[in-house]
């Protein structure tokens, strides 16, 4: 058999062709991961260093990551990276919501300080002696409590808190997605599997107990 014949034979072997294709795909996958690490990671870190306050001016970066990660889903690779990118985007959004919430939650302190100062000044100008620290603290505590509670009942506070909760849940959910993907790769049961099992267990238990009650009731009726 000539060399040309051998080459033709190899090229026509489906097994070898599949192996070559697989190798090409694996290399392509690695290049994509490297490209992502090499391009997106420095980009994200650079943006973080530009705006260390958690992207408080807006949420462009998390929106950009969201758009990037919500692209077409490929069957056999890239998925874990997509999940990690989504988790990272959710983390940035959560930081931004936390900053907004902190700003709203801190709002009553200046008013509390002003009221306390006015109260103490009125005491002093009335000729009363300076109160003991405990008395002064009790007044400070009372005023602050009133202002903090008043703030908590505002639409602004409730909205900021709701958005923080939503962002926190989104982050947790996306972290769970990463953990689920990692568990699946390692052949471990996931939390979803656990929930499925406990759901079946709970439903089965309900059925058994309903049947047991029916049997008991039938027996007691029969005994009458």
């Amino acid at each position: 058999m000539s060399e040309n014949d051998k080459s033709a034979s190899v090229d026509s072997d489906p097994g070898l062709e599949w192996a070559k294709l697989w190798q090409t795909m694996a290399e392509s996958s690695n290049r994509m991961v490297e490209a992502w690490s090499g391009s997106m990671a420095p980009f994200m870190l650079a943006r973080l260093s530009e705006k260390p306050g958690g992207f408080g001016d807006g949420n462009e970066l998390s929106a950009a990551i969201e758009r990037m990660a919500q692209g077409p889903r490929l069957a056999d690779f890239w998925d874990i990276d997509r999940k990690m990118a989504l988790a990272f985007g959710a983390w940035i959004e959560m930081r931004q919501r936390l900053a907004s919430y902190n700003a709203v939650a801190a709002a009553p302190w200046p008013e509390a300080s002003k009221r306390f100062y006015e109260t103490m000044s009125a005491t002093a100008s009335g000729g009363s002696p300076h109160p003991e620290w405990r008395e002064a603290f009790a007044k400070w505590s009372e005023i602050s409590n009133e202002e903090l509670i008043r703030n908590q009942r505002t639409d602004g506070f409730l909205q900021a808190q709701k958005e923080l909760l939503q962002a926190g849940l989104k982050l947790r959910s996306r972290q769970d997605d990463v953990a689920e993907a990692a568990s699946a790769m390692l052949g471990l049961p996931t939390r979803k599997d656990f929930d499925d099992v406990t759901r079946q267990l709970t439903e089965l238990r309900r059925e058994v107990r309903t049947l047991a009650r029916q049997i008991r009731d039938q027996k007691s009726e029969g005994a009458r």
Partner: peptide, 16 residues
């Protein structure tokens, strides 16, 4: 009451 019903579902579904 300030929460959406969906927020409560997500809270429970996320943490179980």
């Amino acid at each position: 009451r300030s929460l959406d019903p969906d927020d409560i579902d997500k809270l429970v579904d996320t943490y179980g």
